[in-house]
Design a protein around this nucleic acid. Structure first.
Lengths: 236, 236
DNA sequence: CAGTTACGCTACGACTCGTATCGAAAGAGT
DNA sequence: ACTCTTTCGATACGAGTCGTAGCGTAACTG
């Protein structure tokens, strides 16, 4: 064993340039052809690589597309501090909606999820490459809201995790359904109404989960509000 | 023109028996093969009809599958009066989750939606065969909640329609995302928490639609909650 | 230098697609 | 009865895709 690390250190390294060309070609092909008519041969031709190279790096169309869209998510989702939980939610909703307007993501996202219902490895890849990565937005938004006093601090970390999961499913699921199933626009007005719903709903569930109804949080206009009163519940 | 109606009345009629056999075969094939490996030839063989017969009635795999799953939705979604808005939401959430546990719907629903992003005719078919049909549950639940006093009566019918759309996207989208993307169980506990969120959120948005961004709703423990108080607020 | 791995290219069998063709079958209208 | 119209089953077809195998070459390591 010449090397203690498990990374391969010998032989010709994989061309990172080809990697980028393939993912770019995949996104371009998604725009032009959509998921259904996208083929591995087509991507290989666009990226100017051999078809065998594709299969050496990705098991199939699904895995390739997951990686291709994951890049877009990383680059186009952020959570700047807009001063209030309501504004933060509104911002990320509009960002996510803009992402779903893109032809690449629109046609690819649902398709890979559909495939993942019968392919556990693919499901894990989606989770690690997209879902878990973007869940950071929820965690960050929660922390900020707690610092502002809009949400109580976490009594139980496991409860906090499940709440974050709920919020993520709530926002991502509703926006996706509105944009792709109902096929109606996610405009500023809808985002505002929905954000109000989210904030009120989340505050309500926070009080209900800790057996005691310690909610009673005040509405926070986007300005200086005094954080304080983290609502330490006596718990069990 | 021998007949005033536009229905064709001459010639051999299409076998309704074959129609049923085809849809049954489609559902069976979805269970065994999933969306990806399902082929028209396979369905034809299972239904014991010629492949040409399939293409005479459906344009392709997507249209066929939409009709096949639409039947399941009609037969397994109902809204019995459980006495409160919270309980009604909880019930439909669990019903919908059970539907998404079925292999047929799980693998087909996302796939056809993905295809519909590039096929407007298919999107309309999904809307009329599934979405619009199940939206009745939301409208019915709203009416009952209004009769109980849990929700205010509609001032503007157009606002009522958009609220119903929001609630539909909210519930269907979140449950789908939880079940298929996050791949976590929609159990009774999750349904209860989510229903609390929905009820509180909806009540909050009802007061807020009139330009004012007021919230200040009280936490509602999941049981007998006193209706009334649609949150009439003194604006800004 | 030798060793190892990635690459481009080609070819391959298996499969699916959607359509065309044809004769036979099943109802409607007279 | 008869004809007209439409559907049905069966088969065959060219086109396209799939994923893999083979082989010689290129690139990097020690």
């Amino acid at each position: 064993m010449p090397c203690p690390t498990h990374r391969r250190r010998t032989g010709r390294p994989r061309s990172t340039e080809a990697n980028r060309a393939i993912l770019d070609a995949t996104r371009a092909a998604l725009v032009e052809l959509g998921w259904g008519k996208l083929t591995m041969s087509d991507v290989a031709a666009r990226a100017k690589v051999a078809k065998t190279t594709l299969y050496r790096r990705w098991a199939g169309k699904s895995e390739l597309v997951v990686d291709a869209v994951a890049d877009i998510f990383d680059g186009h989702l952020a959570l700047p501090d807009r001063g209030s939980l309501h504004a933060d939610v509104e911002g990320v909703v509009l960002q996510f909606a803009a992402l779903l307007e893109r032809p690449e993501t629109k046609t690819a996202l649902m398709a890979v999820v559909a495939e993942s219902t019968r392919d556990e490895a693919l499901r894990d890849r989606i989770r690690s490459a997209i879902v878990e990565r973007q869940k950071r937005l929820v965690l960050l938004g929660r922390e900020r809201a707690q610092a502002r006093g809009e949400l109580p601090f976490d009594a139980d970390p496991s409860v906090a995790a499940s709440q974050a999961d709920l919020i993520f499913d709530l926002i991502a699921g509703t926006v996706v359904h509105r944009a792709l199933v109902s096929a109606e626009p996610v405009d500023a007005e809808w985002a505002a109404t929905f954000s109000t719903l989210v904030v009120s709903g989340v505050q309500a569930t926070l009080g209900a989960t800790a057996t005691a109804t310690t909610a009673a949080t005040n509405a926070a206009p986007p300005a200086t509000n005094s954080p304080r009163e983290p609502a330490e519940s006596p718990s069990s």
